[in-house]
Design a protein around this nucleic acid. Structure first.
Lengths: 207, 207
DNA sequence: TTGCTTTTGTGAAAAATATTACAGTAAGAA
DNA sequence: TTCTTACTGTAATATTTTTCACAAAAGCAA
């Protein structure tokens, strides 16, 4: 028996894109948008936008469109992006550091509250407003700070090993940047940052 | 009239994932794999693997499976990952630097040959085996080095502006890491690194 | 050789997703 | 008020992608 997994994944992905545009519109003091406006922005069909809002149970008004603020609030609620969730990062290399410093994540529902590495020369060093901790502490920190999300930016050789530790520490979701398919119990959610896949599509299309 | 855009995008994405696994198998001196082995690894159906190979026009042998080396060669050929293409990067911030140093891209079909920034304090500085150049040089460099691919890691405020320059400089494809939907002529290929979209799926699923 | 087994290759069915089309509703003008 | 217009909401259709199912091919054992 699955949860309310009623919203299809393509719709979820687009909802996050709509949000970006809506935030820009709010910035510009625009109060309502039509499905056509959104569709033109993203180069998709307006019907698709309306279908997505139907899945999301978001209502508009004929002749007026959708209320920008209402859309933002509702999409945030659906994606659970209201009140960013605490997250940790493992692997404070160059990519890891870049991600820790990427302020936009706040807007995308997560907030880094801890960073881990197993390199003794890094442990204890500051990164942004945190201090790099030893992997040995990870279970304790996850519990103490109620962390549900882990971002994995370790070398591929140890990615699975670290994932195992995260699973044991009762993490709920892993966002994996290592080019390895992680094996985790099915109650743990894994999203792969698919650099290779993006490049595959790109280089294929160039021909 | 489109080119031979006969291979569906989901298949292209999976082909790149198969490749990762195949390289591991080659490392282990395993000479043939069956669709079932690949499918188990990626947690998908074996029929899907065979369908993908059908699109890719890759043949196996009943009872034996597919030849690992042959698969690697053929997938590389399809994705144009044989002989990495020269690429440039614009925006040498922390993410940009991390990507420049990410050696695996070589394996994913691209090789950085130039890096640009418009910060005077960065121009002239070395990054890895390159020197950061001014954006003013970009057109010249693209031509001189026959670069077709640009990786965009600039702040969102200037992403469109830089994209316009790239288009004028006759770039063929842009891999965009800024949270902005770029507007480019339709002959220019854009792939968006969808951090927000990945997180949307992840945070939604956590519930 | 024959029979048994494994695995491919591919049509056909099913499911997921996208597109189309239009009736219905609300705003604003006349 | 009534008319016109610009939207939404959704049912129906089309397309894409996945899954299923099985005949045919090839290796292996006896």
């Amino acid at each position: 028996m699955k949860k309310a997994e009623i919203i299809p994944e393509p719709t979820l992905r687009r909802l996050s894109s709509y949000l970006l545009y809506l935030l820009q519109m709010r910035e510009k003091k625009i109060r309502t948008v039509s499905s056509t406006m959104i569709a033109n922005e993203l180069f998709i069909e307006s019907g698709k936008v309306r279908k997505d809002f139907q899945y999301a149970k978001i209502k508009g008004r004929p002749k007026r469109g959708y209320d920008v603020n209402h859309l933002i609030v509702e999409i945030d609620k659906i994606l659970k992006w209201d009140g960013p969730k605490p997250a940790l990062l493992v692997g404070v290399g160059s990519l890891g550091t870049a991600l820790l410093g990427y302020h936009n994540f706040q807007r995308y529902g997560i907030r880094f509250v801890a960073a881990f590495d197993n390199d003794p020369s890094k442990i204890g060093q500051p990164v942004f407003d945190m201090v790099i901790e030893s992997l040995a502490n990870i279970k304790k920190v996850i519990k103490a700070k109620s962390i549900e999300i882990a971002v994995l930016t370790v070398p591929e050789e140890i990615a699975q090993e670290v994932a195992d530790i995260l699973v044991k520490s009762k993490i709920k979701a892993i966002w994996n940047f290592a080019p390895v398919r992680l094996k985790v119990p099915e109650n743990v959610i894994v999203e792969h940052a698919r650099f290779a896949q993006s490049l595959a599509v790109l280089t294929y299309k160039i021909g």
